[in-house]
């Protein structure tokens, strides 16, 4: 929820104060992301491998896997999501507090993967807004870490003055699909999703084509 009163945090142009506050707030948010591991299948095992000592997600401020959505900042949807699980995923997303981010880990979560079948959601972006898609089947732990760093980079570009528009979410949309019928149809065309690569990427603003900037000290 952004503050929409005009003034320091209002919609005006950024001032010295707001940019510095932004910097501090973003720094704090970025470095203490608590992931909500929504692990269903193979990707969950790689997520566990990332959390174990060889890859050690804790180095990035993700020490605590938050199994309760209400204390989590970033939803990592790792694995395939059948329609039977879709309302559960939506419920968990709705239960998470703002600000929140979502990572779609792996091919199945991002597009349905090989499972272009009757029971599978063809990409969780039809259900919840996704910030970062991680390709791979499953992605390596390095991939997950890279994706999380992209989220961190995205956070560092956020501003309290633009917060309201960036993270706007209609409270009435709780429990409803994120994509409309036409969009779902476009995404999951008659020949499967492999011919339809356009995603609902309106929210993904990071254009990190190379390695994200090293984190500030």
């Amino acid at each position: 929820m952004g503050l929409d009163v005009p003034g320091i945090f209002g919609t005006g142009s950024p001032t010295f104060l707001t940019t510095k506050v932004d910097f501090v707030v973003n720094w704090a948010r970025r470095n203490s992301l608590w992931p909500m591991p929504f692990g269903t299948a193979c990707c969950a095992i790689e997520m566990m491998a990332s959390a174990a000592s060889n890859y050690d997600l804790a180095r990035f401020g993700m020490e605590r896997m938050s199994f309760s959505p209400r204390q989590a900042d970033v939803l990592i949807c790792a694995g395939r999501v059948p329609y039977k699980l879709a309302p559960v995923l939506r419920r968990i997303w709705d239960q998470m507090m703002q600000p929140k981010w979502c990572i779609s880990m792996g091919a199945c979560a991002s597009s349905g993967g090989v499972f272009d079948v009757y029971s599978m959601v063809q990409g969780i972006d039809t259900i919840v807004p996704v910030d970062v898609y991680i390709p791979g089947c499953p992605p390596r732990p390095e991939g997950l870490i890279y994706g999380l760093m992209m989220v961190q980079e995205k956070i560092s570009g956020e501003s309290l003055t633009r917060h309201a528009e960036l993270r706007a979410e209609d409270p009435d949309a709780a429990g409803k699909p994120r994509a409309g019928d036409a969009q779902v149809r476009d995404l999951t065309g008659p020949f499967g999703n492999s011919t339809q690569q356009n995603r609902l990427s309106g929210l993904v603003e990071t254009d990190a084509t190379e390695r994200p900037k090293d984190r500030l000290p």
């Binding site: 299948a41 059948p82 039977k84 559960v88 499972f115 009757y118 029971s119």
Partner: peptide, 11 residues
């Protein structure tokens, strides 16, 4: 169960 039914057998 069935929350991860990916229809392997049909596929």
């Amino acid at each position: 169960i069935g929350y991860l039914h990916s229809s392997f057998e049909k596929l």
